[in-house]
């Protein structure tokens, strides 16, 4: 707890008012009353707002608290996972996202159900999405709690309740459209504030040469390769493969106007990410020279805001981190609650009206937001590694069914179901038995799930022509 100036409270309250205002304004009247509006914003979002929303949803507490913590701990080499993530976007832009937009579904399990002509596959996809996204939210809540506790001295539990309550209110009221427009504002805050803070931080720390000399002496690996190229390849693969099939990103693709909008939005999203990548990499490493020892690297970003930079800049940084958390939580809650209310409920009660589904949706928005809080009270790892676990799960169980399934018409129902289950279980088991061969769990997860997908598809009954018709021109 620091003696912080009143500026922090004014800026924080101002930010909450602006974000709530956007949410309530976009959700005014009857605009978010049906599923088409609530889940995919009426498919009306353009490339710039859409790109910012893609970036804001991806850049979460994992980036500002987690990645910065890892940079603090390990130095500069970790920044090279970003090119891997951008390659993932490229894969998505070439083979996945535009096709998803063209298909005009409401949710990702909708696509799975139709592509594999199987209610079981749709149900499994919905359940696995709900589980993986709950893990993701745990990471967000822990980071929000750390931030508010470090800067304001608010107990962890209350801090996360405040953050989540505000997010749920605007998500609830305005649905995907409110989520996308507030994401846009939040992306501007994230990129702008951190970019502005970096020069101040470098000057405070005594300039680049001094920093480099100091941390090299502290530990030569900080300016060299703390992580080997093999490690970095693993991280890049986690982020790259999962980025291409991440359900909350794919759901955002449905909100865009056309396949070309999708491709442009991905480009604008990468621009936002590049600005943030540079800022986080620099500030994490520079913080190491100012604070050589901390209990956990996750505290580095909060300390930066509270003690290093002038109060106004610090307050804006706190808001930027909260923006990162809230934009991700709102996108994730819409997708994970729709997995239950739209997909599972729709399977259990096929003749449910849209109104009934919407009512279920709002109830599950609350439930999906509250469940991770129980786990966040006692976190099981550093924030970045919680996020990496959920990315690994998504990459392993979803990559074949979504990315390969959109491009290979030989895939069958049994292949999709088998690959989802094998991918999910491989990641969990590989992690539990302590990563044999020194491999990160995502690599066997993705490899096994692709092999199973191919082999099972080869030996099982092909899909009827009608099921493939929406996806392939020449069946």
């Amino acid at each position: 707890m620091f003696n912080i100036s009143d500026t922090f409270y004014y800026v924080l309250i101002g930010y909450f008012v602006i974000i709530l205002g956007i949410g309530l304004w976009t959700g005014r009247g009857d605009k978010s009353k049906n599923s088409e509006e609530f889940l995919v914003a009426g498919r009306s979002i353009g490339a710039v707002v859409g790109g910012a929303a893609l970036a804001a949803t991806q850049m979460s507490a994992g980036t500002f608290v987690g990645s910065m913590g890892v940079h603090w701990m390990t130095g500069v080499s970790y920044q090279w996972f970003w090119p891997g993530l951008w390659l993932g976007w490229l894969v998505s832009a070439l083979w996945v996202a535009p096709k998803m937009q063209k298909f005009r579904a409401l949710t990702v399990p909708d696509y799975i159900g139709q592509r594999y002509n199987s209610k079981l596959a749709k149900g499994i996809a919905a359940v696995l999405i709900f589980v993986a996204l709950t893990v993701s939210l745990i990471g967000q809540y822990v980071a929000g709690g750390i931030l508010l506790q470090t800067v304001f001295g608010i107990p962890m539990l209350y801090g996360s309740i405040i953050t989540i309550a505000i997010t749920i209110i605007y998500t609830f009221k305005g649905g995907m459209k409110a989520s996308a427009y507030s994401d846009f504002v939040q992306a501007l805050i994230m990129a702008g504030c951190f970019f502005a803070a970096v020069p101040i931080l470098v000057i405070q720390a005594g300039g680049m040469e001094h920093i480099a000399a100091f941390i090299t002496e502290l530990d030569p690996r900080l300016t060299g390769f703390y992580y080997s190229v093999k490690d970095l390849f693993g991280f890049a693969m986690v982020f790259g493969v999962s980025m291409a099939v991440m359900p909350y990103e794919l759901a955002k693709m449905y909100t865009l106007k056309s396949p070309r909008t999708v491709r442009l939005a991905i480009g604008f999203g990468m621009v936002f990410q590049a600005i943030v990548a540079l800022s986080v990499s620099l500030s994490g490493t520079v913080m190491r020279s100012l604070f050589p020892t901390l209990n956990t690297g996750d505290a580095a970003s909060s300390l930066l805001a509270a003690t290093v930079v002038p109060p106004l800049v610090g307050a804006l940084l706190v808001v930027a981190i909260l923006a990162a958390i809230m934009s991700t939580v709102s996108g994730v809650i819409i997708v994970s609650s729709s997995a239950i209310s739209h997909d599972i409920y729709g399977l259990l009660k096929p003749n449910a009206t849209d109104k009934e589904k919407m009512r279920m949706n709002k109830i599950w928005c609350l439930i999906a937001g509250v469940i991770p809080m129980f786990f966040a009270i006692r976190p099981f790892d550093m924030v970045q590694f919680i996020i990496i676990l959920q990315s690994s799960l998504i990459a392993a169980f979803f990559f074949p069914a979504v990315a390969i399934g959109l491009n290979w018409k030989g895939a069958t129902k049994a292949g999709a179901i088998a690959s989802m289950i094998v991918g999910f279980c491989t990641v969990i088991i590989w992690r539990e038995i302590g990563n044999p061969l020194g491999l990160h769990e995502v690599i066997p997860g993705v490899v096994f799930s692709c092999i199973v997908y191919y082999v099972v598809s080869k030996f099982t009954k092909p899909l009827p022509r009608e099921a493939l018709l929406p996806f392939f021109k020449d069946v």
Partner: peptide, 23 residues
């Protein structure tokens, strides 16, 4: 003690995305 990589990769990507038309 990334910028150039990002400018080349993302710049190239945006040019491609801008000139690619929908079928």
């Amino acid at each position: 003690l990334l910028v150039i990589y990002a400018i080349v990769f993302i710049g190239g990507y945006l040019i491609w995305a801008y000139y690619t038309k929908d079928e």
